[in-house]
Amino acid sequence: MHKTSRPGLSRRSILLSTATLFIAGATGARARTIAGSLPWEPNAGNPLTPVKLGPWEFFTGDEGRAMEALADRIIPPDPQTPGGKDAGCAVFVDRQLAGPYGRQDGLYIRPPFKAGAKNQGHQMEAGPGQQYRQGLAALDRACKSKYAGKPFAELSDSEKDIVLNGIESGDFQLEGTDGKSFFEQAIRDVQMGFFADPIYGGNRDMVAWKMIGFPGARYNYLDWVNRHNERFPLPPVGMTGRAEWTPQTR
């Protein structure tokens, strides 16, 4: 048995720290003294809980509609593969913003906040949550004023693309926010949701992995390392298994 005495550590505090881990993640762990054997505890690595479908957790209804419309222009549907909306990319972004990423957990957010060179990295106090809130609102405002009161989600696909091309080139300005960097961020996050494991809400039924030919969270290619220039035949698996094994209700 490993000893759990000093500094200030009892078996009880280790049990408490396990519960804490679920809330605080890796940074919430408590100090322990380890001697005599390897300390094995159930769920020390904190396995994930799959994202559940349901109401938005971060977005308002308007923001959610704008985000889904944005996801479907960044990744448009085609006959073979669904677009960003049906692939769950807006759900992915919503759950990410509602979680540690949106809250900037673990990042250094102490003042003073000063503008710096681009290669010194992000220096603003506002995190991704605030950027999305401002960006989506500014996008809808700009669209409403240009297209007779219609928010982004209600524009035609070609109107949406005109707006997004304008934002990308800097010709179409969003008021009160840096539209270009907001759109860059949205592209990054939507595409990330498309290619991440479906456990996070995007890449529903592994549509993105099927599209590109990525076999997913597979673990053993020993039989394949020497088979050159031959298409790997098996369908993708995610952390929760294959799509047809784990039908999701939605």
Binding site: W40, E41, N43, A44, G45, P47, L48, D197, I199, G216, A217, R218, Y219, M239
Partner: peptide, 10 residues
């Protein structure tokens, strides 16, 4: 405990 193949490929 921390790197199981069941969820490390993330």
């Amino acid at each position: 405990t921390d790197f199981p193949p069941s969820y490390m490929q993330d």
